[in-house]
Write a protein that binds this DNA or RNA. Structure first.
Lengths: 344, 344
DNA sequence: ACACAGTGCTCACACGTGTCACTGACACGT
DNA sequence: ACGTGTCAGTGACACGTGTGAGCACTGTGT
């Protein structure tokens, strides 16, 4: 990175940022009093007239406390860091993350998303550690090594939590059972008589953390039923889908779980263009229960995924912070159920 | 908010967070030397053996500098704050934001997203100001009042930038010409002979900042051509679409610009179910050029939107920070063009 | 012998905040 | 007069860092 140049960033002199000392001066009291008043400290008693004078002075100057100074003094920051994923997340996660943030703020945490694009895992961990967050909640475990966790904990983080598919040493690993998604999809296909079942694996990077476990789940479901599972790599474009459809009959497939509804729609169109009838010749099922899937003919069957509430997760985080030495959290983060429509 | 309780958050004593003083002690030098070495300060000369000893000591202790202390001393933070929008953003913006963040980091800024869910504008501005960001870049101007801008600037922010549809006093307002989207869509419909043109307005909250200007743009395009524009409120569900389609012939519409591809797909299906042929009886055009739109029959026409590069915007921000007194930035952030397929 | 410059490092302050320990002032009971 | 207690507030330190001023030492020129 470039060196911090710092070319005399003086403000225009007359407009210095007001501090609590300025407030104290204007109100004619000591700085300590200002601190007590503005923080509503209950242990010290300040008369009502003084309180008012302080508040008015703060208002007049437009005083805003300096978070860095505050947390420096306090020794901690009540800040929860969310490494921003480079994963392309759908509306499901957006909604979940919004709720989660809102709930954390209710618990008086400051939520900060901090990107790590183009950094190695350990480098990123160090950058996060500089902010001295009280907790780190990572979507996926890809950007966290055991060493990175160690760095974070040593820098004062009381909880490191991953929302992923596997456990990571030293973290509270909340497992999203992606495997269940593949499992219920495959089970549904098997129960409706399909025998050679394709599972679409997106070739787009960053999705492996979801697609891998879903494939495994499908395999588990097929085990011992006589059905076989065939992984099908697919890029999210028409040409790739056409190519896959062209060799469909050679593969002798009669059912497919297509990772999610978008890939399912793409593939179903290609199959139909190839003259393969859905669901008679091949059943298709997606995941996420997008509205758009209901607009196709046949209507797309799907796996609906119910995420845990953001509020619940926020409470788990809060507990992990308050009692860092308790056993690692354990909670299934999502639930899956088949929504059968017409394509399967 | 609840009071900060601070119930003796002592770490297990043996594991205190290491500071530069610890590093100095271990390396047998002064704290100043440590600072000089770890920051590669060129003005002071430190011998190579000493440098090595310091680096090794830092490594051994797992020392990570304390960002709060650093920026407290420095008086500024090179932190760019991105208020997280409560707007449901599509893949277009996700991509753009990723690029933008990456580019800012290249310029040695620290990018932090900070939510303001459930806060009033002024309250949120105050919370942001506590972090003393050097710049604030807001997607949309909804969560920024003139007063909020004043608070931020007074707290040391050298640039407040909005990516929106209108100017805000005191900010560098980068205008996304949403109007153009509606304009090119309507122009296209008019040129292909349509006379009564519907414009879908999503009823979902948070989208007004886009839908309003798009409607206005469509109106501009129709002006003086003899065509009329009819706003059509629509919720993103099948029932609402069915209801709209049911009164379609009464409205006597022969063309529709449907806000984006998702609403367009929803509406087109409802029209077809109602027995209205597309494009013969009614032309349909969306926006965003989603892949899924190409899967329908007829294939969906759309307005492709080319966003400005994240890197360019990052450079604008950098310039605004370095020279805060220059004229407000001005730059059109997006470009629109019609992609004609089969539905229009 | 002295001035002077260069090298390698340290001292001590400042940044803005929270809070512990303490101080006057006044009231009350004896 | 004295001890005790409450009220309303203040003084001073600590948090971790960056940096200008300065110090001890060595070499070099006159």
């Amino acid at each position: 990175m470039s060196q911090s140049t710092d070319q005399s960033p003086e403000r225009p002199a007359g407009r210095a940022v007001p501090t609590s000392a300025d407030v104290a001066r204007l109100a004619g009291v000591s700085r300590a009093t200002v601190s007590y008043v503005l923080n509503n400290t209950s242990a010290v008693r300040i008369s009502e007239p003084t309180r008012r004078r302080v508040r008015e002075a703060a208002e007049e100057l437009g005083y805003v406390p300096h978070a860095a100074a505050r947390s420096l003094r306090a020794g901690h920051s009540r800040m929860v860091l969310l490494p921003t994923a480079h994963v392309p997340v759908g509306p499901l996660y957006s909604q979940f993350f919004n709720d989660f943030q809102w709930a954390l703020r209710r618990l008086d945490y400051t939520v900060v998303q901090y990107g790590s694009v183009g950094m190695r895992a350990e480098e990123a961990a160090r950058a996060w550690a500089e902010l001295r967050p009280v907790a780190v909640v990572s979507l996926g475990e890809a950007e966290l090594t055991a060493q990175g966790v160690e760095i974070l904990k040593r820098s004062g983080a009381r909880a490191v939590i991953t929302l992923g598919t596997q456990n990571v040493e030293g973290t509270h690993a909340l497992v999203m059972e992606q495997g269940r998604v593949g499992e219920v999809a495959a089970t549904h296909l098997v129960e409706t008589g399909r025998r050679r079942i394709g599972v679409v694996i997106p070739e787009e990077p960053g999705l492996d953390m979801f697609s891998g476990p879903r494939l495994e789940g499908a395999r588990r479901a097929a085990e011992g039923t006589g059905a076989t599972v065939v992984p099908l790599p697919l890029r999210y474009d028409e040409e790739s889908a056409r190519a896959l459809a062209a060799r469909w009959r050679d593969e002798d497939l009669d059912g497919v779980f297509a990772y999610n509804d978008e890939y399912a729609m793409l593939l179903m169109r290609a199959l139909q263009d190839e003259g393969i009838s859905v669901p008679e010749e091949t059943a298709v099922i997606g995941a996420d229960d997008l509205l758009l899937g209901r607009l196709l003919r046949p209507r797309l069957s799907t796996v609906a995924i119910d995420m845990v509430l953001g509020r619940e997760l926020a409470e788990l985080v809060d507990r992990a912070v308050r009692e860092p030495d308790t056993a690692p959290l354990s909670r299934s983060l999502l639930d899956s159920r088949v929504v059968r429509r017409e394509s399967s």
